[in-house]
């Protein structure tokens, strides 16, 4: 049943939009990444670990991960007023919580790791791309990590559970559920949902999100190997 459902943009329930990832795209940042998915364009820069001067914010037993998610005024149809709003403040908090478990923060007391996520163009699913880009940029900055966090949104459109919602599906669909996991252990580090889902539908959606995250994780690994590994017979290795 599910397999026959074709979405408005011609995709099947389990196909992602075209993705493109690149690391080391910025000159000054300690680590950086650029991620595209459909027409989404997200640029991530990482600075740190560096000393955190503010005593109020620093932690004696580990680094503080500070994350800023920001949308460019021209990234959406109606111009977005520059600066933080309620949405970006919430997303920033959640992304830093999604990334924190994967980093050995305890290795860097009294310091900060700063991640800036700039959304250049938005077409649905930017918070997940922000997470994907952030973990790539952290790896590019050579910050020791337990895993490369991967994220993807799933949702319900016309009563079908689908993966990687487009802007239209995000606005008109019945549910939207972004998920981030650490693929090695399968631990969930980010989970949000709004819309209408029954508990069995939620379980299906979560399974689909896991599959998509595993796939995206492969792409992330390839991206890093392409930059830092060697190539043999079209295969990349460390």
């Amino acid at each position: 049943m599910k397999e026959q459902f074709t979405r408005n943009d011609g995709r099947t329930f389990n196909s992602l939009r075209n993705m493109k990832m690149e690391v080391g795209v910025l000159n000054n940042a300690d680590g950086s990444a650029y991620v595209e998915c459909g027409n989404n364009k997200v640029l991530v820069g990482v600075y740190g670990p560096r000393e955190l001067y503010s005593k109020k914010h620093s932690k004696p037993d580990g680094a503080v991960l500070r994350c800023k998610y920001n949308m460019a005024p021209f990234s959406v149809k109606e111009r977005k007023r520059p600066g933080p709003d309620r949405r970006s403040t919430e997303i920033s908090k959640l992304i830093s919580e999604a990334i924190s478990p994967s980093i050995f923060l305890e290795k860097y007391p009294r310091s900060s790791i700063d991640i800036s996520i700039e959304v250049l163009e938005a077409e649905g699913g930017t918070r997940c791309l922000g997470i994907v880009g952030a973990s790539l940029a952290l790896a590019d900055a050579e910050i020791p990590m337990r895993d490369l966090t991967s994220a993807c949104a799933v949702g319900k459109v016309d009563d079908h559970i689908v993966v990687d919602l487009s802007e239209e599906e995000d606005q008109t669909g019945q549910a939207d559920m972004p998920v981030a996991i650490m693929p090695r252990t399968g631990d969930i580090t980010f989970l949000q949902m709004d819309g209408n889902l029954s508990v069995p539908e939620f379980e299906d959606a979560l399974k689909l999100a896991f599959d998509a995250c595993f796939f995206i994780n492969q792409l992330q690994q390839e991206t890093l190997l392409k930059k830092y590994g060697g190539e043999k017979n079209g295969e990349y290795y460390l």
Binding site: L94, E97, S100, P101, M177, M182, T185, G186, D187, I188, T189, F190, L191, Q192, M193, D194, G195, N196, L197, S198, V199, F202, L206, F210
Partner: peptide
């Protein structure tokens, strides 16, 4: 009716499925 309308995970650690 028992269906879900919102979900939010918070906190610095993980949750398993």
């Amino acid at each position: 009716d028992g269906t879900l309308c919102a979900l939010q995970k918070c906190g610095l650690d993980v949750l398993t499925a």
